[in-house]
Design a binder for these strands. Sequence first.
RNA 1: GGAGAGUUGCCGGAGAGGUUGAUCGGGGCGGUCUCGAAAACCGUUGUGGGUUUACGCCCACCCAGGGUUCGAAUCCCUGACUCUCCGCCA
Length: 426
Amino acid sequence: MLDIKYIRDNTERVKKAVHQKNAQIDIDRLLHLDSEKRQLQYDFDHRRAHQKKISKEIPLMKKSGEDTTNVLNEMQTLAAELKSISNNITNLSETIEQIMIGIPNTPHPSVPEGQSEQDNVIDKDVNSIPEDNKSADYRKHHIIAEQLGLIDLIRGAKITGSGFPVYKGQGAQLERALSNFMLDFHCHNHNYQEVAVPFVVNRKAMTGTGQLPKLEDDMYHIDQDDLFLIPTGEVPVTNIFANEILPYSVLPAKFVTLTPCFRREAGSYGKDTKGLQRIHQFNKVELVRFVQPADSYAALEEMVNEAETILDALNLPYRRTLLCAGDMSFASAKTYDLEVWAPGARKFLEVSSLSNFEDFQARRASIRFRDDKGTVRFLHTLNGSGLATPRTFIAILENYQNPDGSVTVPQVLRKYMDGRDKITGI
RNA sequence: GGAGAGUUGCCGGAGAGGUUGAUCGGGGCGGUCUCGAAAACCGUUGUGGGUUUACGCCCACCCAGGGUUCGAAUCCCUGACUCUCCGCCA
């Protein structure tokens, strides 16, 4: 959510941002409703002040034996008027609120302009793809996984539907090793506190982080309770502090969590359907930070590095892109993506997306803090994957595959796999 | 699932229709005292909106949303959450 005052004072900039993020919002109408509401509020406040004053005099009048019939009649009228005004205000507020929660965040000035993925800027190439890695001999992950019996897509589909994989044996072990490795890594090396959170959240939480109202169709919904399966750990973790004013001393707060993520992927049927590339349920380690406004951009760079060190530790080739305005999520002010190289698929796969939301989520979820002067302010929130497991899993299978059909286990994962150095199947 | 109790400011806890934004205690902050500290004493201590150059003034908020009333933290209805007991399941 943006500050309505900010919208009043920076109307053109907001309109531009709305346009950049491909949203359809009538800002002029919003401003009109807002001024209408303030006028009504002003009117209400004055009449209400009068009502309170007289109401206090009434008992005194009664005590001194005065006739209060006329006053009471007048007050009755006034009460009715107040009620009507306040109803109008409530209606207007609801309309305004509805428009407000549909306005996307404004991109940071350092974010490149652009409409889509094509306009993202590649700003770092790491472990650039080795020549031999480009060879056509590399097999795709689902071939490897099938041969070694690591995943079972058919049976997953039988249980639930397509896009719900079953991991088996050493595959399940590798998946769990990855999760545990990443979780431990961020806790030990980057000072995050691990949290385990609900995987089902309410509408309020979803709105707080900005998934709602825009992405309702992309989420699994439990009608009976009006609850949603989380599409990312960001939602429950960011909402941990909803409606709170945090003391200065708790910032920066840094949390890491491992959660499953549920995504309907509406509208992307037929895209990346082979294997684990695009699935409806997957595990992801998520980093979340709550920081003072002045620190948020430094924090974003730090988090990107933290996510990168996972890829470095796994010794996988990857690149970093800076998303253009049009490709960023609704709530983000600036986003970096990390993409790992998959030599079998012969393309880069997104394994992490790291964003600074500035005070956009904090406003929606009302997360504030007391600054060093004691003033209550909205804080800044950030989050990023560190990392999503399926595509990391893919990258490991494809990059670490051996001619004999086995897959070497990356050094750092071995202690999580009973010391095993090779995946050889059942 | 059944029965009951509760939700007030940073915390504890009053308050039961009329200057109550809220008694009191604790904590925090500032001060007096002290070489310093403790104790004691004095003062202060919410959030949001509107208005003002400013001091200030006005409005809203006592879990949330409705209702009754000239007037509600206080009465009524609905919902959420917490706790206790019973049942059921892990």
